[in-house]
Nucleic acid binder design. Structure first.
Length: 483
RNA sequence: GCCCCCAUCGUCUAGCGGUUAGGACGCUGCCCUUUCAAGGCAGAGAUCAGGGGUUCGAAUCCCCUUGGGGGCGCCA
């Protein structure tokens, strides 16, 4: 089995593209096949090297390693290259096959200008007719052609579409599919610039690269009949074809920037783990009979199956994504969590040099509550700088009548503690509550707010230990002034 | 205007002629607990888009309607 992911480098790797790449990758791994990455940069205006770089980065981040294709270092891997279409174009690969079809009368040159075409398309739409190419250049005489050439017109090569019959295929996801040829157009294979169009380049390359299974988005369904005609005209066997359902935004329309983050890079920057993205994306449009949600490393590669692919579109659910990220964060060894969190801490500008306890210990305190790496700095910042007292927390717990006495009392207790460690702090705090006839919570809550400014946070006595005696006493004093 | 695809809890989905329509996220309640999470337990939530068939029997098969999505580029 040879599968490929063939992005066009006109932007970052989007969620939909990533899902397509993932499914192809999983398919290859599952069947011990080959996963190929081909760059489809035939859009001369919009393709950029930065996009290619960005796509590579996202692929690698997600762990979607490819076996053949264009590589980030500019080199290539595999024997079916080049894997970049602009490079292939320069080698005349597409021209060769276009010429063949032209020679065989299966294609023809069309001299219509984009403007003329555009106009007749608009007119057709206004008159509520099909905006298909009308075939006006199908049978130009030699004189007409010469006249066009004399005008300096550059022709495009169009495929001569049959108006009778139909094309069909058994889709890997949708089963039987069929299109009447009469709704198909004499599509362009080679642009006036000599560059191939998507439909043409795709077929030529998939064949030459010996792709056995093409798995792509639903939005390509209507391209498929055109490509099937190309395979037939070229005398090639078409690969197996599968079309994945689209990923939609919460409003039911195609997922895009309008819905917030739409590219893999943006999710990365927000602090989602690659494992999360991979797992979550796998569940959009695919499931196994057990409805399994979480997959261990390597498990998707084992269990993925085209049979589990959904025909209907899926709405991207950021809430479930967050849940899943929390699951993966909790799974992390604390060293790994620290390593992952560090860039976010640095990014936040938090000065951690002031800490008297290693960052790893502080960060470990919050790991189990963390859903997004980006939210970690805000959770731990009170360890490194004066707490920001939340008005709600102050109003809720610091305004109780017994609080001043509690804070003053606990301050004395803490300053008298010989060993400022979690266990003794807890013991002393509980003893203090008991002696004052207070419930534990009546002491714990105000102390927490006084020290951290918040009513939620890490396990209390460990937190106090990490804050240290001096700082804790200082904050207790500060809190007194707020009451 | 034409073509194509799709349709099970709010969301992701299981189901593939006979099920109390299952799971997950989210939601509610309880338990645990110093808080917040996490975890455990319980629960609400789907007349399987609607209407016709086929069948002893339909979420499952067929048709129509409706709704949603995609396409009809010298974009991919």
């Amino acid at each position: 089995m040879r599968v490929r992911f063939a992005p066009s480098p006109t932007g970052h790797l989007h969620i939909g593209g990533a899902r397509t790449a993932l499914f192809n990758y999983l398919l290859a791994r599952k069947h011990k096949g080959t996963f190929i990455l081909r760059i489809e940069d035939t859009d001369e205006d919009r393709s950029t090297a930065e996009s290619t770089k960005s796509i590579f980065e996202s692929m690698l981040w997600l762990g979607l390693n490819w076996d053949e294709g264009a590589m980030p270092d500019g080199m290539e891997k595999g024997s079916c290259g080049p894997y970049v279409q602009s490079v292939r174009e320069a080698q005349g690969i597409y021209r060769k096959y276009a010429d063949q079809l032209l020679r065989e009368g299966k294609a023809f040159l069309c001299y219509c200008s984009p403007e003329e075409l555009d106009e007749s398309r608009k007119k057709a739409l206004v008159e509520k007719r099909d905006p298909l190419y009308d075939g006006r250049c199908r049978s130009l005489t030699e004189d007409q052609r010469k006249a066009f050439e004399a005008q300096g017109r550059k022709p495009v090569a169009r495929f001569l579409m049959s108006k009778e019959g139909s094309v069909g295929w058994t889709d890997l996801v949708h089963k039987e599919m069929k299109f009447e040829n009469k709704v198909l157009s004499d599509f362009v294979m080679l642009k006036a610039s000599g560059y191939p169009t998507y439909n043409f380049a795709c077929v030529v390359d998939d064949h030459l690269m010996e792709i056995t299974h093409v798995v792509r988005g639903d939005d390509h369904i209507s391209n498929t009949p055109l490509q099937l005609h190309l395979y037939a005209a070229l005398g090639w066997k078409a690969p197996e074809l599968g079309h994945l359902s689209m990923i939609l935004g919460p409003d039911g329309t195609r997922l895009s920037k309008r819905h917030g983050a739409a590219s893999v890079g943006e999710y990365r920057r927000q602090g989602y783990l690659p494992e999360t993205m991979k797992n979550y994306l796998a569940l959009l449009g695919w499931s196994n009979p057990e409805s399994q949600q979480l997959f261990k490393k390597g498990e998707l590669e084992e269990k993925f199956d085209l049979k589990g692919c959904q025909k209907s579109p899926a709405i991207f659910d950021p809430v479930k994504l967050d849940w899943m990220n929390g699951e993966y964060i909790r799974l992390l060894p604390k060293e790994d969590f620290l390593a992952l969190a560090l860039p976010f801490v640095k990014e936040s500008g938090l000065d951690i040099s002031a800490g008297r306890v290693p960052l790893i210990d502080i960060v470990a305190l919050e790991q189990e509550k963390c859903k997004l790496l980006a939210e970690l700095p805000a959770k731990v910042e009170f360890f490194f700088k004066d707490p920001v007292y939340s008005p709600e927390a102050v109003a809720k717990t610091l305004k109780n009548p017994e609080v001043p006495q509690v804070i003053k009392g606990i301050k004395e207790v803490y300053s008298a503690l010989p060993e400022f460690k979690e266990a003794p702090i807890e013991a002393a705090t509980r003893a203090f509550a008991k002696s004052g006839g207070l419930k534990a919570g009546q002491v714990f809550h105000p102390v927490r707010v006084a020290l951290s400014g918040r009513s939620d946070g890490p396990t209390l006595f460990r937190m106090i230990e990490y804050l240290g005696k001096e700082e804790s006493l200082k904050r207790l004093d500060k809190a007194l002034t707020l009451i």
